[in-house]
Simulated assay, not measured.
Amino acid sequence: MKLNRIQLCSILMVLFHLVGLYGFLNSELEVLFIALVPYHLLLMLGLLIYSTKDFSNNIKIFAVIIYLAGFFIEVIGVNTGLIFGNYSYGEALGLKVFSTPLLIGVNWLILVYCTGVLLEYLKIKNSLIFPLIGALILLGIDFLIEPVAIRFNYWSWSGGEIPLQNYLGWYIFSFLLFFVFKGLDFNKDNKAAIVLLFAQIGFFLGLNMWAF
Rank of each mutant, 00 (worst) to 15 (best):
I59E: 10
G77V: 05
T100G: 06
I110T: 08
G105V: 08
L109N: 07
W108C: 08
G85Q: 03
N86T: 14
G77K: 01
F71P: 00
A92H: 07
F98E: 06
L68P: 02
V78T: 15
F62P: 09
Y50Q: 11
I83D: 00
G90V: 10
V106W: 01
L102V: 12
N107A: 13
Y50W: 15
Y67R: 00
L68R: 00
T80K: 07
Y67P: 00
I73H: 02
L103R: 03
E91V: 12
V112T: 11
V64Y: 05
I76H: 10
Y89V: 06
K60C: 12
N58M: 12
I104P: 00
F84E: 04
G70W: 00
N79W: 08
L68D: 04
L111T: 13
F62K: 01
G90L: 04
L68M: 12
T115W: 09
F84S: 01
L82P: 08
I73F: 11
L93F: 10
V97W: 14
K96L: 10
N58A: 10
T80Y: 03
I110D: 09
L68K: 00
F55H: 14
I49N: 04
L93M: 14
V78Q: 09
L95E: 13
G77A: 08
I61W: 11
I66M: 04
S56C: 02
N79R: 03
I83Q: 03
L82W: 15
I65H: 01
N57L: 15
S99G: 08
Y67M: 00
G85E: 09
L109Q: 09
V64A: 15
A92K: 04
K60I: 14
T80R: 01
V78S: 14
L82I: 15
G81E: 06
F98N: 03
G105K: 05
G70L: 01
Y89N: 01
W108T: 05
Y50V: 15
F98G: 05
L93D: 08
V64Q: 09
F72E: 03
D54K: 08
I49S: 06
V97M: 13
T100P: 01
K96G: 03
L95G: 02
I66W: 03
L109S: 07
K53C: 11
C114G: 10
I110N: 08
V97H: 09
L68T: 11
G90R: 03
L95W: 14
N86D: 14
L111K: 11
F72G: 04
I49Y: 15
A92P: 08
G81Y: 05
W108K: 04
Y113C: 09
G105T: 02
S56G: 12
T52W: 12
I59M: 10
F98Y: 13
F72P: 01
G70K: 07
L93K: 04
S88R: 12
N86C: 11
Y87T: 03
T115V: 14
Y89I: 02
L103A: 06
G90H: 04
I61G: 02
V64G: 11
G105E: 02
W108F: 05
V112A: 10
W108A: 02
P101H: 09
G85M: 07
E91P: 01
F72I: 12
F62R: 07
V97N: 06
A69S: 13
L109A: 09
Y113R: 09
A63C: 11
N57M: 12
I104L: 00
E74G: 02
G85C: 04
G90Q: 06
